[in-house]
């Protein structure tokens, strides 16, 4: 079974089609990067798949469950780290993690184990008792991503996870994301082409709400006739008429 299969998934706003008849398949355990310039429809796609936005038409199946008719089942297997950092400002780092454990129905012991594990994995121990609202942007982002992993999701959505991180923090986060590969399906969006190339099994390139093409980074480069991935991206997006 595919982790994600979208069928003519479409989102229309008043005067614009943000996502236009998207047919995309993501295999289980795969890390897929959704690429595209500002406004291409990446976040809207993620919002539809995570039940935040109702599609105008079309449907999508997450591990076989329809986002339209099996919303509860879908919510039980996904987690999201939104594009804007989403943490509770007056709660400490630890309490934020506990909160997410709680809303996923973990009991006290499970929650404690999971929170301890993730704060260790993300190096959050030193800021555990700080209020999340007082952390720097980079730390908030780390926390935001750690929060997405509390529930052991089968499908993880990371919308621009490394935005605003310094070089070291980014490289740390790359390692963490790599470590997730295979154990869960990851959909990631980014504007850093080197990131997409380094992390992705496959990339999907969108423009004006449409899917231009999907393929491994190597395939994309071959298709564009260049050995630089960022150049390949630019060529493909520029040449596409949609």
């Amino acid at each position: 079974m595919d982790a994600i299969k979208t069928v003519e998934l479409t989102k229309e706003y008043k005067d614009l089609t943000a996502v236009d008849g998207l047919n995309l398949t993501v295999r289980q355990g795969e890390l897929l990067s959704l690429l595209g310039v500002n406004g291409a429809g990446k976040t809207t796609t993620i919002k539809m798949l995570t039940r935040l936005t109702q599609p105008t038409s079309g449907d999508a199946y997450l591990l076989g469950k329809s986002i339209l008719t099996e919303s509860a089942a879908v919510k039980n297997m996904i987690a999201v780290s939104p594009q804007e950092t989403a943490v509770a400002p007056n709660l400490t780092v630890w309490e934020n993690l506990e909160l997410i454990a709680g809303v996923h129905g973990l009991n006290k012991d499970e929650a404690k184990g999971k929170v301890t594990e993730l704060s260790g994995r993300f190096g959050l121990g030193e800021v555990a008792n700080k209020r999340a609202g007082k952390l720097s942007g980079g730390w908030q982002r780390r926390l935001s991503i750690a929060m997405a992993l509390i529930s052991d999701p089968q499908i993880l959505f990371l919308d621009e996870p490394t935005l605003g991180l310094d070089v070291l923090a980014r490289s740390d986060l790359w390692d963490m994301i790599r470590a997730l590969k295979g154990s869960m399906t990851v959909i990631l969006t980014t504007h850093y082409m080197e990131e997409a190339e380094a992390l992705s099994d496959r990339v999907a390139i969108m423009k004006n709400g449409r899917l231009l093409l999907t393929g491994t980074p190597a395939e994309i480069k071959r298709r564009a006739g260049t050995d630089k991935f960022d150049e390949a991206f630019v060529r493909i997006v520029k040449e596409a008429v949609v």
């Binding site: 935040l52 039980n76 939104p82 804007e84 929060m147 529930s151």
Partner: peptide, 17 residues
């Protein structure tokens, strides 16, 4: 106004919750 609530909307919390 923040994405915090959006994040919670993607969890199993129901409207009643």
């Amino acid at each position: 106004g923040s994405s915090f609530l959006q994040r919670l909307y993607t969890t199993p919390l129901t409207a009643g919750d």
